[in-house]
Design a binder for these strands. Structure first.
Lengths: 214, 214
DNA sequence: GTCTATAGGGTGATAGAC
DNA sequence: GTCTATCACCCTATAGAC
Protein backbone atom coordinates (compact mmCIF):
# COMPACT_ATOMS: atom_id res chain seq x y z
CA UNK A 1 0.00 0.00 0.00
CA UNK A 2 1.32 3.38 -0.98
CA UNK A 3 1.68 5.88 1.79
CA UNK A 4 -0.20 9.06 1.07
CA UNK A 5 1.85 12.20 1.26
CA UNK A 6 -0.15 15.00 2.81
CA UNK A 7 2.46 17.66 2.14
CA UNK A 8 2.45 20.24 -0.56
CA UNK A 9 1.10 19.34 -3.94
CA UNK A 10 4.29 19.29 -5.91
CA UNK A 11 5.88 17.11 -3.32
CA UNK A 12 3.11 14.56 -3.34
CA UNK A 13 3.01 14.65 -7.10
CA UNK A 14 6.74 14.00 -7.20
CA UNK A 15 6.11 11.05 -4.97
CA UNK A 16 3.24 9.84 -7.10
CA UNK A 17 5.48 10.17 -10.12
CA UNK A 18 8.13 8.01 -8.50
CA UNK A 19 5.55 5.42 -7.51
CA UNK A 20 4.30 5.35 -11.05
CA UNK A 21 7.78 4.87 -12.49
CA UNK A 22 8.49 2.03 -10.08
CA UNK A 23 5.27 0.34 -11.09
CA UNK A 24 5.98 0.83 -14.78
CA UNK A 25 9.39 -0.74 -14.41
CA UNK A 26 7.97 -3.63 -12.41
CA UNK A 27 5.41 -4.33 -15.12
CA UNK A 28 8.10 -4.22 -17.78
CA UNK A 29 10.15 -6.80 -15.92
CA UNK A 30 7.11 -8.96 -15.24
CA UNK A 31 6.22 -8.97 -18.92
CA UNK A 32 9.80 -9.73 -19.93
CA UNK A 33 10.69 -12.42 -17.42
CA UNK A 34 7.45 -13.55 -15.87
CA UNK A 35 5.45 -12.24 -12.95
CA UNK A 36 7.12 -14.47 -10.39
CA UNK A 37 10.59 -13.55 -11.64
CA UNK A 38 10.17 -9.94 -10.55
CA UNK A 39 12.87 -8.78 -8.15
CA UNK A 40 13.16 -5.51 -6.29
CA UNK A 41 16.86 -5.28 -7.06
CA UNK A 42 16.18 -5.45 -10.77
CA UNK A 43 13.55 -2.73 -10.47
CA UNK A 44 15.95 -0.51 -8.56
CA UNK A 45 18.79 -1.23 -10.99
CA UNK A 46 16.78 -0.07 -13.97
CA UNK A 47 15.80 3.10 -12.16
CA UNK A 48 19.33 3.86 -11.01
CA UNK A 49 18.39 3.41 -7.38
CA UNK A 50 19.46 1.14 -4.59
CA UNK A 51 17.03 -1.60 -3.69
CA UNK A 52 16.28 -0.47 -0.12
CA UNK A 53 15.16 2.91 -1.44
CA UNK A 54 12.11 1.21 -2.89
CA UNK A 55 10.90 0.61 0.64
CA UNK A 56 10.20 4.33 0.90
CA UNK A 57 7.42 3.78 -1.61
CA UNK A 58 6.32 0.22 -1.01
CA UNK A 59 6.37 -1.49 2.35
CA UNK A 60 7.15 -4.87 0.83
CA UNK A 61 7.36 -6.73 -2.43
CA UNK A 62 3.81 -7.92 -1.95
CA UNK A 63 2.74 -4.30 -1.64
CA UNK A 64 4.27 -3.70 -5.03
CA UNK A 65 2.34 -6.68 -6.35
CA UNK A 66 -0.73 -5.19 -4.74
CA UNK A 67 -0.25 -1.87 -6.53
CA UNK A 68 0.27 -3.76 -9.77
CA UNK A 69 -2.94 -5.67 -9.12
CA UNK A 70 -4.78 -2.43 -8.47
CA UNK A 71 -3.64 -1.02 -11.80
CA UNK A 72 -4.55 -4.20 -13.64
CA UNK A 73 -7.97 -4.24 -12.02
CA UNK A 74 -8.53 -0.60 -12.97
CA UNK A 75 -7.61 -1.36 -16.55
CA UNK A 76 -10.09 -4.21 -16.50
CA UNK A 77 -12.77 -1.89 -15.15
CA UNK A 78 -11.98 0.62 -17.89
CA UNK A 79 -12.34 -2.10 -20.48
CA UNK A 80 -15.73 -3.13 -19.13
CA UNK A 81 -16.87 0.49 -19.01
CA UNK A 82 -15.87 1.10 -22.59
CA UNK A 83 -17.71 -2.07 -23.57
CA UNK A 84 -20.75 -0.79 -21.73
CA UNK A 85 -20.71 2.38 -23.79
CA UNK A 86 -19.81 0.66 -27.02
CA UNK A 87 -22.37 -2.09 -26.94
CA UNK A 88 -25.18 0.01 -25.55
CA UNK A 89 -27.12 -3.03 -24.52
CA UNK A 90 -28.81 -1.56 -21.53
CA UNK A 91 -32.34 -2.42 -22.51
CA UNK A 92 -33.94 -5.62 -23.56
CA UNK A 93 -34.64 -4.26 -26.97
CA UNK A 94 -31.03 -4.49 -28.01
CA UNK A 95 -30.56 -5.86 -31.48
CA UNK A 96 -28.43 -8.88 -32.16
CA UNK A 97 -27.37 -9.75 -28.67
CA UNK A 98 -25.08 -12.45 -29.98
CA UNK A 99 -23.07 -9.91 -31.90
CA UNK A 100 -22.63 -8.01 -28.64
CA UNK A 101 -21.47 -11.21 -26.97
CA UNK A 102 -18.92 -11.75 -29.68
CA UNK A 103 -17.65 -8.21 -29.50
CA UNK A 104 -17.32 -8.41 -25.75
CA UNK A 105 -15.54 -11.74 -25.96
CA UNK A 106 -13.13 -10.41 -28.54
CA UNK A 107 -12.34 -7.28 -26.54
CA UNK A 108 -11.75 -9.31 -23.43
CA UNK A 109 -9.57 -11.73 -25.34
CA UNK A 110 -7.46 -8.88 -26.69
CA UNK A 111 -7.14 -7.53 -23.16
CA UNK A 112 -5.86 -10.87 -21.88
CA UNK A 113 -3.67 -11.95 -24.76
CA UNK A 114 -2.19 -8.46 -24.98
CA UNK A 115 -0.64 -8.85 -21.55
CA UNK A 116 -0.29 -12.42 -20.25
CA UNK A 117 1.43 -11.24 -17.09
CA UNK A 118 -1.57 -9.09 -16.29
CA UNK A 119 -3.86 -12.05 -16.98
CA UNK A 120 -1.84 -14.17 -14.59
CA UNK A 121 -1.92 -11.57 -11.83
CA UNK A 122 -5.64 -10.88 -12.22
CA UNK A 123 -7.08 -14.31 -12.78
CA UNK A 124 -4.66 -16.92 -11.49
CA UNK A 125 -3.52 -17.10 -7.90
CA UNK A 126 0.02 -18.19 -8.40
CA UNK A 127 2.27 -15.89 -6.35
CA UNK A 128 2.81 -17.61 -3.01
CA UNK A 129 1.75 -15.44 -0.11
CA UNK A 130 0.17 -12.72 -2.18
CA UNK A 131 -3.47 -11.79 -1.82
CA UNK A 132 -4.74 -8.52 -3.23
CA UNK A 133 -5.93 -6.06 -0.62
CA UNK A 134 -9.59 -5.15 -0.57
CA UNK A 135 -8.72 -1.69 -1.86
CA UNK A 136 -6.91 -3.10 -4.84
CA UNK A 137 -9.60 -5.68 -5.38
CA UNK A 138 -12.40 -3.11 -5.42
CA UNK A 139 -12.10 -2.18 -9.11
CA UNK A 140 -12.10 -5.86 -10.01
CA UNK A 141 -15.34 -6.31 -8.11
CA UNK A 142 -16.75 -3.27 -9.84
CA UNK A 143 -15.80 -4.69 -13.21
CA UNK A 144 -17.41 -7.99 -12.32
CA UNK A 145 -20.62 -6.32 -11.19
CA UNK A 146 -20.76 -4.25 -14.35
CA UNK A 147 -20.24 -7.39 -16.37
CA UNK A 148 -23.04 -9.11 -14.50
CA UNK A 149 -25.33 -6.17 -15.26
CA UNK A 150 -24.32 -6.25 -18.91
CA UNK A 151 -24.98 -9.96 -19.07
CA UNK A 152 -28.32 -9.49 -17.35
CA UNK A 153 -29.31 -6.85 -19.86
CA UNK A 154 -28.42 -9.33 -22.58
CA UNK A 155 -30.69 -11.97 -21.10
CA UNK A 156 -28.38 -13.82 -18.73
CA UNK A 157 -30.07 -13.45 -15.39
CA UNK A 158 -29.04 -16.50 -13.41
CA UNK A 159 -25.78 -16.25 -11.53
CA UNK A 160 -24.91 -19.76 -12.60
CA UNK A 161 -25.20 -18.82 -16.24
CA UNK A 162 -23.04 -15.73 -15.83
CA UNK A 163 -20.49 -17.84 -13.96
CA UNK A 164 -20.57 -20.41 -16.72
CA UNK A 165 -19.97 -17.85 -19.43
CA UNK A 166 -17.04 -16.24 -17.66
CA UNK A 167 -15.58 -19.67 -16.98
CA UNK A 168 -15.83 -20.56 -20.66
CA UNK A 169 -14.17 -17.31 -21.64
CA UNK A 170 -11.36 -17.58 -19.12
CA UNK A 171 -10.90 -21.25 -19.95
CA UNK A 172 -10.41 -20.53 -23.63
CA UNK A 173 -7.96 -17.74 -22.87
CA UNK A 174 -6.05 -19.76 -20.32
CA UNK A 175 -5.63 -22.60 -22.79
CA UNK A 176 -4.59 -20.15 -25.47
CA UNK A 177 -1.95 -18.52 -23.31
CA UNK A 178 -0.63 -21.77 -21.84
CA UNK A 179 -0.56 -23.98 -24.90
CA UNK A 180 -0.41 -21.78 -27.96
CA UNK A 181 0.96 -18.35 -27.06
CA UNK A 182 0.93 -16.09 -30.07
CA UNK A 183 -1.36 -18.41 -32.00
CA UNK A 184 -5.12 -18.55 -32.32
CA UNK A 185 -6.07 -22.19 -31.82
CA UNK A 186 -8.41 -21.33 -28.94
CA UNK A 187 -9.10 -17.72 -29.88
CA UNK A 188 -10.67 -19.03 -33.05
CA UNK A 189 -13.28 -20.85 -30.96
CA UNK A 190 -14.67 -17.70 -29.36
CA UNK A 191 -17.52 -17.15 -31.79
CA UNK A 192 -18.45 -20.81 -31.66
CA UNK A 193 -18.50 -20.62 -27.87
CA UNK A 194 -20.81 -17.62 -28.03
CA UNK A 195 -23.24 -19.52 -30.22
CA UNK A 196 -23.13 -22.52 -27.94
CA UNK A 197 -23.73 -20.48 -24.82
CA UNK A 198 -26.45 -18.31 -26.33
CA UNK A 199 -28.28 -21.39 -27.57
CA UNK A 200 -28.07 -22.79 -24.08
CA UNK A 201 -29.52 -19.76 -22.34
CA UNK A 202 -32.11 -19.15 -25.05
CA UNK A 203 -30.75 -15.98 -26.50
CA UNK A 204 -32.33 -15.70 -29.92
CA UNK A 205 -29.97 -16.13 -32.84
CA UNK A 206 -31.15 -13.36 -35.12
CA UNK A 207 -31.09 -9.61 -35.02
CA UNK A 208 -34.59 -9.45 -33.70
CA UNK A 209 -35.69 -7.81 -30.49
CA UNK A 210 -37.03 -10.08 -27.79
CA UNK A 211 -40.25 -9.00 -26.17
CA UNK A 212 -40.40 -8.81 -22.45
CA UNK A 213 -43.73 -10.48 -21.84
CA UNK A 214 -43.92 -12.29 -25.11
CA UNK B 1 16.03 -36.05 -14.85
CA UNK B 2 16.82 -38.93 -12.57
CA UNK B 3 20.04 -40.74 -13.25
CA UNK B 4 19.53 -44.42 -13.82
CA UNK B 5 21.53 -46.68 -11.59
CA UNK B 6 22.74 -49.72 -13.45
CA UNK B 7 24.17 -51.43 -10.40
CA UNK B 8 22.70 -54.23 -8.42
CA UNK B 9 18.98 -54.37 -7.92
CA UNK B 10 18.79 -53.57 -4.26
CA UNK B 11 21.07 -50.64 -4.75
CA UNK B 12 19.04 -49.17 -7.56
CA UNK B 13 15.88 -49.85 -5.63
CA UNK B 14 17.37 -48.03 -2.67
CA UNK B 15 18.05 -45.15 -4.98
CA UNK B 16 14.58 -45.28 -6.43
CA UNK B 17 13.22 -45.29 -2.91
CA UNK B 18 15.20 -42.18 -2.05
CA UNK B 19 14.03 -40.46 -5.21
CA UNK B 20 10.48 -41.32 -4.34
CA UNK B 21 10.79 -39.98 -0.82
CA UNK B 22 12.28 -36.73 -2.07
CA UNK B 23 9.43 -36.35 -4.51
CA UNK B 24 6.85 -37.14 -1.86
CA UNK B 25 8.29 -34.49 0.42
CA UNK B 26 8.43 -31.96 -2.39
CA UNK B 27 4.77 -32.56 -3.16
CA UNK B 28 3.86 -32.18 0.48
CA UNK B 29 5.58 -28.82 0.65
CA UNK B 30 4.07 -27.69 -2.64
CA UNK B 31 0.61 -28.55 -1.38
CA UNK B 32 1.21 -26.81 1.94
CA UNK B 33 2.90 -23.62 0.80
CA UNK B 34 2.33 -23.37 -2.91
CA UNK B 35 4.19 -24.80 -5.84
CA UNK B 36 6.45 -21.81 -6.32
CA UNK B 37 7.35 -21.74 -2.62
CA UNK B 38 9.12 -25.07 -2.84
CA UNK B 39 12.74 -24.97 -1.71
CA UNK B 40 15.35 -27.68 -1.84
CA UNK B 41 16.58 -26.80 1.62
CA UNK B 42 13.14 -27.37 3.06
CA UNK B 43 12.93 -30.72 1.31
CA UNK B 44 16.30 -31.75 2.68
CA UNK B 45 15.44 -30.46 6.14
CA UNK B 46 12.34 -32.62 6.37
CA UNK B 47 14.29 -35.65 5.23
CA UNK B 48 17.14 -35.07 7.65
CA UNK B 49 19.56 -34.45 4.83
CA UNK B 50 21.75 -31.60 3.72
CA UNK B 51 20.53 -29.68 0.72
CA UNK B 52 23.48 -30.48 -1.58
CA UNK B 53 22.83 -34.18 -1.12
CA UNK B 54 19.70 -33.74 -3.20
CA UNK B 55 21.92 -33.09 -6.18
CA UNK B 56 22.86 -36.75 -6.15
CA UNK B 57 19.29 -37.45 -7.17
CA UNK B 58 18.25 -34.37 -9.09
CA UNK B 59 20.58 -32.23 -11.16
CA UNK B 60 18.68 -29.05 -10.32
CA UNK B 61 15.51 -27.72 -8.79
CA UNK B 62 13.90 -27.65 -12.21
CA UNK B 63 14.73 -31.33 -12.57
CA UNK B 64 12.82 -31.95 -9.39
CA UNK B 65 9.92 -29.97 -10.83
CA UNK B 66 10.27 -32.09 -13.93
CA UNK B 67 10.01 -35.31 -11.95
CA UNK B 68 7.00 -33.90 -10.15
CA UNK B 69 5.46 -33.05 -13.50
CA UNK B 70 6.14 -36.55 -14.76
CA UNK B 71 4.35 -38.05 -11.77
CA UNK B 72 1.42 -35.69 -12.14
CA UNK B 73 1.16 -36.47 -15.83
CA UNK B 74 1.25 -40.20 -15.10
CA UNK B 75 -1.51 -39.81 -12.58
CA UNK B 76 -3.52 -37.94 -15.18
CA UNK B 77 -2.92 -40.73 -17.68
CA UNK B 78 -4.01 -43.28 -15.09
CA UNK B 79 -7.19 -41.32 -14.52
CA UNK B 80 -7.96 -41.22 -18.21
CA UNK B 81 -7.24 -44.94 -18.55
CA UNK B 82 -9.55 -45.80 -15.70
CA UNK B 83 -12.20 -43.63 -17.27
CA UNK B 84 -11.70 -45.47 -20.52
CA UNK B 85 -12.36 -48.76 -18.80
CA UNK B 86 -15.16 -47.45 -16.65
CA UNK B 87 -17.16 -45.73 -19.30
CA UNK B 88 -16.65 -48.32 -21.98
CA UNK B 89 -17.62 -45.91 -24.69
CA UNK B 90 -15.46 -47.34 -27.40
CA UNK B 91 -18.15 -47.84 -29.93
CA UNK B 92 -20.73 -45.56 -31.32
CA UNK B 93 -23.47 -47.65 -29.84
CA UNK B 94 -22.75 -46.44 -26.34
CA UNK B 95 -25.81 -45.67 -24.35
CA UNK B 96 -26.38 -42.32 -22.77
CA UNK B 97 -23.29 -40.51 -23.93
CA UNK B 98 -24.19 -37.50 -21.84
CA UNK B 99 -24.03 -39.55 -18.68
CA UNK B 100 -20.53 -40.58 -19.72
CA UNK B 101 -19.63 -36.95 -20.24
CA UNK B 102 -20.86 -36.09 -16.77
CA UNK B 103 -18.99 -38.94 -15.17
CA UNK B 104 -15.81 -37.98 -16.96
CA UNK B 105 -16.21 -34.36 -15.98
CA UNK B 106 -16.81 -35.27 -12.36
CA UNK B 107 -13.79 -37.56 -12.21
CA UNK B 108 -11.59 -34.93 -13.77
CA UNK B 109 -12.93 -32.30 -11.39
CA UNK B 110 -12.15 -34.50 -8.41
CA UNK B 111 -8.67 -35.04 -9.78
CA UNK B 112 -8.07 -31.30 -10.04
CA UNK B 113 -9.77 -30.09 -6.89
CA UNK B 114 -8.15 -32.88 -4.92
CA UNK B 115 -4.72 -31.40 -5.55
CA UNK B 116 -4.61 -27.75 -6.64
CA UNK B 117 -0.82 -27.73 -6.70
CA UNK B 118 -0.90 -30.58 -9.19
CA UNK B 119 -3.45 -28.69 -11.26
CA UNK B 120 -1.19 -25.66 -11.29
CA UNK B 121 1.85 -27.65 -12.34
CA UNK B 122 0.02 -29.55 -15.05
CA UNK B 123 -2.18 -26.91 -16.59
CA UNK B 124 -0.81 -23.49 -15.75
CA UNK B 125 2.65 -22.38 -16.80
CA UNK B 126 3.60 -20.29 -13.86
CA UNK B 127 7.05 -21.39 -12.65
CA UNK B 128 9.58 -19.05 -14.27
CA UNK B 129 12.16 -20.93 -16.27
CA UNK B 130 10.54 -24.33 -15.96
CA UNK B 131 9.41 -26.30 -18.97
CA UNK B 132 8.64 -29.99 -18.65
CA UNK B 133 11.02 -32.24 -20.57
CA UNK B 134 9.63 -34.22 -23.45
CA UNK B 135 10.02 -37.39 -21.39
CA UNK B 136 7.95 -36.00 -18.57
CA UNK B 137 5.47 -34.53 -20.98
CA UNK B 138 4.92 -37.82 -22.78
CA UNK B 139 2.28 -39.21 -20.39
CA UNK B 140 0.41 -35.94 -20.60
CA UNK B 141 0.33 -36.21 -24.37
CA UNK B 142 -0.79 -39.80 -24.06
CA UNK B 143 -3.59 -38.74 -21.73
CA UNK B 144 -4.64 -36.03 -24.15
CA UNK B 145 -4.67 -38.42 -27.07
CA UNK B 146 -6.70 -40.95 -25.11
CA UNK B 147 -9.11 -38.20 -24.19
CA UNK B 148 -9.40 -37.19 -27.82
CA UNK B 149 -10.17 -40.78 -28.75
CA UNK B 150 -12.74 -41.03 -25.99
CA UNK B 151 -14.36 -37.82 -27.12
CA UNK B 152 -14.33 -39.02 -30.72
CA UNK B 153 -16.04 -42.24 -29.69
CA UNK B 154 -18.65 -40.13 -27.98
CA UNK B 155 -19.33 -38.14 -31.11
CA UNK B 156 -16.87 -35.25 -30.81
CA UNK B 157 -14.77 -35.53 -33.90
CA UNK B 158 -13.63 -32.01 -34.69
CA UNK B 159 -10.48 -30.85 -32.95
CA UNK B 160 -12.10 -27.50 -32.33
CA UNK B 161 -14.93 -29.14 -30.43
CA UNK B 162 -12.59 -31.22 -28.31
CA UNK B 163 -10.54 -28.11 -27.58
CA UNK B 164 -13.69 -26.26 -26.64
CA UNK B 165 -14.82 -28.93 -24.24
CA UNK B 166 -11.48 -29.17 -22.47
CA UNK B 167 -11.35 -25.38 -22.26
CA UNK B 168 -14.79 -25.30 -20.66
CA UNK B 169 -13.79 -27.95 -18.18
CA UNK B 170 -10.48 -26.33 -17.26
CA UNK B 171 -12.14 -22.93 -17.08
CA UNK B 172 -14.71 -24.11 -14.59
CA UNK B 173 -12.05 -25.76 -12.47
CA UNK B 174 -9.71 -22.82 -12.63
CA UNK B 175 -12.46 -20.48 -11.48
CA UNK B 176 -13.40 -22.92 -8.74
CA UNK B 177 -9.86 -23.18 -7.43
CA UNK B 178 -9.09 -19.49 -7.73
CA UNK B 179 -12.29 -17.96 -6.44
CA UNK B 180 -14.03 -20.52 -4.27
CA UNK B 181 -11.53 -23.09 -3.00
CA UNK B 182 -13.31 -25.72 -0.99
CA UNK B 183 -16.71 -24.67 -2.27
CA UNK B 184 -18.77 -25.81 -5.22
CA UNK B 185 -19.99 -22.66 -6.95
CA UNK B 186 -18.43 -23.69 -10.26
CA UNK B 187 -18.37 -27.44 -9.66
CA UNK B 188 -22.14 -27.30 -9.50
CA UNK B 189 -22.20 -26.08 -13.09
CA UNK B 190 -20.51 -29.15 -14.53
CA UNK B 191 -23.67 -31.02 -15.49
CA UNK B 192 -25.17 -27.89 -16.99
CA UNK B 193 -22.00 -27.40 -19.01
CA UNK B 194 -22.24 -30.97 -20.29
CA UNK B 195 -25.79 -30.39 -21.48
CA UNK B 196 -24.81 -27.14 -23.14
CA UNK B 197 -21.87 -28.67 -24.94
CA UNK B 198 -23.67 -31.84 -25.98
CA UNK B 199 -26.53 -29.79 -27.39
CA UNK B 200 -24.01 -27.80 -29.34
CA UNK B 201 -22.27 -30.77 -30.91
CA UNK B 202 -25.50 -32.67 -31.51
CA UNK B 203 -25.05 -35.43 -29.03
CA UNK B 204 -28.53 -36.83 -28.46
CA UNK B 205 -29.97 -36.22 -25.03
CA UNK B 206 -31.52 -39.61 -24.34
CA UNK B 207 -30.18 -43.06 -23.76
CA UNK B 208 -30.56 -44.03 -27.36
CA UNK B 209 -27.88 -45.39 -29.62
CA UNK B 210 -26.88 -43.29 -32.60
CA UNK B 211 -26.45 -45.14 -35.88
CA UNK B 212 -23.30 -44.73 -37.85
CA UNK B 213 -24.68 -44.24 -41.30
CA UNK B 214 -28.10 -43.23 -40.29
C1' DG C 1 27.90 -43.36 -4.40
C1' DT C 2 26.67 -40.62 -0.77
C1' DC C 3 27.50 -37.61 2.38
C1' DT C 4 29.48 -32.98 4.75
C1' DA C 5 31.53 -28.59 4.23
C1' DT C 6 31.93 -24.63 1.92
C1' DA C 7 31.58 -20.85 -1.40
C1' DG C 8 29.38 -17.62 -4.91
C1' DG C 9 25.75 -14.96 -6.23
C1' DG C 10 21.13 -14.24 -6.01
C1' DT C 11 16.72 -12.69 -2.99
C1' DG C 12 13.59 -9.74 0.55
C1' DA C 13 14.08 -7.04 4.41
C1' DT C 14 15.93 -3.90 8.16
C1' DA C 15 18.99 -0.52 10.78
C1' DG C 16 21.18 3.60 10.81
C1' DA C 17 24.10 7.43 8.82
C1' DC C 18 23.51 11.54 6.10
C1' DG D 1 14.65 10.02 0.86
C1' DT D 2 18.52 7.88 -0.23
C1' DC D 3 22.28 5.57 0.76
C1' DT D 4 25.62 1.77 2.89
C1' DA D 5 25.95 -2.17 5.55
C1' DT D 6 24.07 -6.16 7.03
C1' DC D 7 21.14 -10.21 7.92
C1' DA D 8 18.95 -14.50 6.69
C1' DC D 9 17.40 -17.04 3.30
C1' DC D 10 17.55 -19.10 -1.35
C1' DC D 11 19.63 -22.07 -5.56
C1' DT D 12 23.72 -23.72 -7.46
C1' DA D 13 28.17 -25.75 -7.60
C1' DT D 14 32.33 -27.99 -6.15
C1' DA D 15 35.78 -30.20 -3.17
C1' DG D 16 36.73 -33.87 -0.41
C1' DA D 17 35.76 -37.33 3.46
C1' DC D 18 33.95 -41.96 4.01
Amino acid sequence: MVLVDTNSDWKSSRRAEAVRRIQDTAWTIAREQGLAALSLREVARRLGMQAPSLYSYFASKNDLYDAMFARAASELATLVESLDAELGVRTETAIDVRASFKTGARRFAEFCVGDPARFQLLFQRTIPGFEPSSDSYAPAIRALEMTDRQLASMGVRERGHADLWLAILSGLLSQQLSNDPGGDRWLGLLDDAVEMFCDHVDIPPQRRARRRNG
